[in-house]
Design a protein around this nucleic acid. Structure first.
Length: 960
RNA sequence: GGGCAUGUAGCUCAGUUGGUUAGAGUACCGCAUUGACAUUGCGGGGGUCACAGGUUCGAUCCCUGUCAUGCCCACCA
């Protein structure tokens, strides 16, 4: 069998992926090894947006979920991982509009259906890109069950969900203040209005409004004349960051307890520019100590003021249109953009002597998540979802019930707090968007005739069907299809009725909220729904816990009556060197996962991502740029690990292939120490890895496998095996490699599958290994501990393993100590040295004699000059190393400096004596009285050990 | 304003029920290149576990406070 000298992922990855996919190994129906004790494992992928390409966050998601999926599949759980993509309404529409703009086209010049057709075409293309990239990441999803949020069935799911919630009164339409994005011309939810904590540089303008008095009833000169406020004697000063909204003011308010203004309450302030009077009112919403303590109130353009306006029955005066331009109410500023208007208004205020001062101020601006445009609070008619009860149930699902069991477990646990905090303070969800791409709201209105128009975008349908309201007949119908809507409407209105569908679409997260069940066929009662719902695991980044996870739980409970999954595992975010979230807007620091795969291989990238941190913790990717190429040292380290494994396997396969033995032993029962030891260590590793994996400690599990593979298997075991590669050793080597490959498969699927296939080819005819009886590693069982000897119970096995590990430790220590001295004396490996090992008592001598050759080879000792025996006297001029009850004497080819050696030993002696003093003090302190017995015993044992060493050291020094 | 997380070796990070000598990778230093692998081997140096208190026989770990950093939520104009 020919294996390349170094592992080349490019020769392997695509071929192996195709092998898995062609054979249908990702499907639950293909699983051969099924363990009836394992609960089935079902997970749905967080559907990537069809807006572009995958980034490092997706790679982390893929690595984590594929790890989980492969692990459960190998454990014998019936396992399904459902893939899919999200139509991502607002994001996709923005991308396509941008693309059209480059071609000189604009959405508003197209019909809705033509535009949607463009988006579909683009979606097809983008979907292909994403699918290819997903395959590069190695995800073992069942592609036959792939879903898209706008597939026919998933759209039916959306309409069904909407109708059920509508009929129940959970979904309603209302006119209220929403976050308005004046660039994308749609309302967005609270979660999509992003506010930076530190705010943005801006100004706080202090403006004084004249107060109406008997002598001065209002301006006598035109605005801009510079004499507008002439004659006014009293003023009230307010502070604002948005002076243009002055035009929409309908009150000035102060705090009821603010004595400075008591006299002014009830007076009239005259609004700059328009000269309209507004009342001065009092309300608790005012912070006395901010600014002047008086606030302007703009009920139509500010959330707080909206509430104040309702409380005090103020006028709601809109001065901004949907593009955030000043409308006719703005008097002289009509038609101006809000920011232009602000500039001019400030100038004019100054001219009129009404600008008291201008302060620099960090303004906490809300910006649209996608457009980046400054959000303009605006009153509009939208669809809302009442979240209160749904949120209460979702919160309860994560709280322990009477039996102390939680319907949903959140990992890591700390995210429970955020979960409860958000759900317990939930507000209604604005679910309508004034977009074209998405699920159009399944509500039809009775039109005033077929010519009834829906108006242009951004406008709501409030003008339609007002007439019908008066006639005591339903004016709107929520149905699954237009046909059904017409059927209902005709019954009420007669055959001539014309219906017009609501033009809005639903927030993209509405359909995402149905994902775990809509992908399985809901609302239809499909076999998949019956078999795989509720699902098991929801894995995603913690940044979308509210957007997505909470809504899935709420909608799952509402619509299916069940929690959609029992575990939520949240991973961290990918960050740059400086801790900022990695994004394409800073390309010099951003890392493309495909570049990393190209440079290091998919397995290396994945192993890195899994072992880079702990659950829920962010991962900082340290990027270096060398010769224009981005490098990540830790991925390089993972690549080296893959290569190490590759070469270890190359060695094993070569040895096994050339070994003549073909008969497997009756029993598997290794007799030699190295074989016993590696078996013991494999068992230990298997136990720990299984435990850690079941506790979601994937990083720790990966590190254990790394350590076992490199340190134990490659550095010690294989080196020892080389000495005498007999039949038993061949079998143990094959078994151990098989174990490593199976343990590592969920972490590094490609290289392990490739090597395992080769191992099976070479070894399955020579050894009886049940684990090799599978067509592919992906379907093979995850390792179980082997009983150490088939005649022993597990328990006996473990205790023998302990002895074996102790023995091996002695051998390792002897070899290591010789190496250390060699290194101190700077001996080159070609220089073989003499060594005497003096053992005090017991079987030590036998053990070491048995491994005479190992010591000679691994520690570079001259076999004719290695002496092992009981209580041998020290030769002259040697370095002496004490190891427990053993002494190691190394003449070092006459290089030993006796004086230095004496000093070394006395230093050691001094250190030991110090340790004794410390230990005795410790035992004589309260520690000796209060610490648990086993801890005290340990300390005492240490003391005894040290005392013994001191005695020996003294003897040795005396003899020198 | 409320909340969460992080602070451990030059760098990136582990350290899950507190046990007295704190680990890994990488970088660094020394030695070694026909013998599975230089994407390597062998050896080495490097940390008052942010700081200050407290609980405890004992604290990187638990509690309180401080500082620094990152993030989330909330209508301070």
């Amino acid at each position: 069998m020919e294996l390349a000298k170094a592992y080349n992922p490019k020769d392997v990855e695509d071929r192996i992926y195709e092998f898995w996919e062609k054979n249908g190994y990702f499907k639950p129906e293909s699983q051969i090894y099924l363990n009836p004790d394992e609960k089935q494992f079902v997970i749905t992928i967080p559907p990537p947006n069809v807006t572009g390409t995958l980034h490092m966050g997706h790679a982390l998601t893929a690595a984590t979920e594929d790890l989980m999926t492969r692990y459960h599949r190998m454990k014998g759980a019936r396992t399904l991982w459902v893939p899919g993509t999200d139509h991502a309404g607002i994001a996709t529409q923005a991308v396509v509009e941008k693309k059209l703009a480059k071609e000189g086209k604009h959405r508003r010049d197209m019909s809705r259906s033509d535009f949607i057709e463009e988006v579909w075409a683009w979606k097809e293309y983008s979907h292909g890109v994403i699918t290819n990239q997903s395959k590069k990441l190695g995800i073992s999803v069942d592609w036959n069950r792939e879903a898209f949020t706008m597939d026919e069935n998933l759209s039916l799911a959306v309409r069904t969900a909407f109708k059920r919630m509508y009929d129940k009164g959970l979904i309603y339409r209302d006119t209220r203040m929403v976050n308005w994005d004046p660039v994308q011309l749609t309302g967005v939810s609270d979660l999509e209005a992003i506010t930076e904590d530190e705010g943005e540089p801006g100004h706080l303008w202090h403006v004084r409004y004249p107060i109406q008095t008997n002598r001065w009833e209002g301006p006598r000169h035109a605005w801009g004349s510079g004499q507008w406020a002439e004659g006014a004697s009293h003023f009230i000063t307010v502070a604002t960051t948005r002076p243009e909204t002055i035009l929409g003011d309908s009150a000035v308010m102060v705090h009821p307890d603010d004595e400075r203004y008591t006299d002014l309450i009830g007076c009239r302030a005259i609004l700059p520019v328009l000269g309209r009077w507004t009342p001065i009112i009092c309300d608790e919403a005012v912070q006395k100590d901010f600014g002047s303590g008086a606030v302007k109130v703009t009920p139509a353009h500010d959330f707080t003021d909206y509430e104040v306006g309702k409380r005090h029955h103020l006028q709601f005066i809109e001065v901004l249109d949907q593009h955030a331009k000043m409308n006719a109410e703005a008097g002289p500023y009509v038609g101006l953009d809000r920011f232009e208007c602000r500039k001019r208004l400030v100038k004019d205020l100054e001219k009129e002597g009404l600008l008291v001062k201008t302060e620099d101020y960090q303004v906490r601006l809300a910006r649209g998540e996608r457009s980046g445009a400054v959000i303009e609070p605006r009153i509009s008619m939208q669809w809302f979802c009442n979240m209160k009860d749904m949120a209460a149930r979702a919160a309860a699902a994560a709280r322990p019930d009477a039996d102390d069991k939680k319907a949903i477990t959140i990992v890591p646990e700390r995210f429970e707090k955020v979960w409860f905090q958000w759900l317990d303070n939930i507000r209604d969800w604005n679910i309508s968007r004034q977009l074209w791409w998405g699920h159009q709201i399944p509500v039809w209105y009775v039109a005033e005739g077929s010519e009834s128009s829906q108006g242009s975008e951004g406008s709501n349908v409030k003008n339609v069907a007002n007439l019908s309201n008066l006639q005591n007949r339903p004016s709107q119908y929520c149905e699954l299809t237009e046909l059904e809507a017409y059927a209902k409407a005709r019954a009420d209105w007669g055959d001539d009725v014309t219906l017009v569908q609501d033009t809005d679409v639903l927030d993209t997260w509405f359909s995402s909220g149905l994902w775990p069940f809509s992908t399985l066929g809901w609302p239809k009662e499909t076999p998949d729904m019956a078999q795989y719902y509720p699902t098991t695991m929801l894995e995603t980044g913690y940044d979308i816990i509210f957007f997505w996870v909470a809504r899935m739980v709420m909608m799952g409970l509402e619509l299916t009556g069940k929690v959609p999954f029992d575990t939520i595992y949240l991973h961290g975010l990918i960050r740059e060197n400086d801790g900022k979230k990695m994004s394409k807007s800073r390309p010099e620091k951003a890392v493309d996962p495909l570049d990393m795969i190209d440079a290091y291989g998919c397995d290396a990238l994945r192993f890195y991502l899994i072992t880079a941190g702990a659950p829920g913790n962010d991962i900082k990717v340290e990027v270096k740029t060398v010769d224009g190429k981005k490098q990540v040292e830790r991925i390089e380290g993972a690549r080296n690990f893959a290569n190490k494994l590759w070469n270890a396997a190359r060695f094993v396969l070569g040895k096994v292939e050339s070994s003549s033995s073909s008969e497997s032993a009756e029993r598997y029962e290794p007799a030699n120490l190295a074989n016993q030891w590696i078996t013991a260590r494999a068992n230990e590793t298997i136990l720990n890895v299984r435990r850690l994996m079941d506790e979601y400690q994937y990083g720790e599990a990966g590190r254990l496998i790394y350590e076992f593979t490199w340190n134990d298997f490659c550095d010690w075991y294989v080196e020892l095996a080389k000495l005498d590669f007999d039949r038993e050793t061949a079998e143990v080597t094959v078994r151990t490699l098989d174990t490593i490959l199976r343990l590592l498969h969920p972490f590094m699927p490609f290289i392990t599958e490739e090597l395992w296939q080769k191992l099976r080819e070479v070894a399955s005819s020579k050894f009886k290994l049940g684990s090799l009886d599978y067509p592919a590693l992906i379907l093979a069982p995850f390792p179980q501990t082997n009983s150490f000897s088939e005649r022993m119970s597990e328990e006996e096995s473990r205790s023998v393993e302990l002895i074996v590990k102790t023995q091996m430790h002695i051998l390792q220590e002897v070899i290591t100590q010789i190496r250390i001295v060699r290194s101190e004396y700077k001996l080159t490996p070609d220089k073989k040295i003499a060594a005497t090992i003096s053992t005090a008592i017991g079987p030590d001598a036998e053990l070491l004699k048995l491994h005479f050759e190992a010591i000679c080879v691994l520690a570079r000792v001259d076999s004719s000059q290695l002496v092992i025996g009981q209580l041998l006297p020290a030769p002259d001029k040697v370095v002496s190393v004490q190891m427990g009850s053993r002494w190691l004497y190394l003449p070092m080819a006459g290089l030993v400096d006796l004086a230095a050696e004496k000093k070394r030993l006395s230093d050691e002696l001094a250190a030991l004596e110090q340790a004794i003093v410390k230990g005795e003090n410790l035992l004589n302190s309260d520690f000796g009285k209060r610490a648990p017995t086993n801890v005290i015993e340990k300390e005492k044992a240490k003391l005894v050990d040290a005392q013994q060493k001191i005695g020996q050291l003294k003897e040795r020094l005396a003899s020198m």
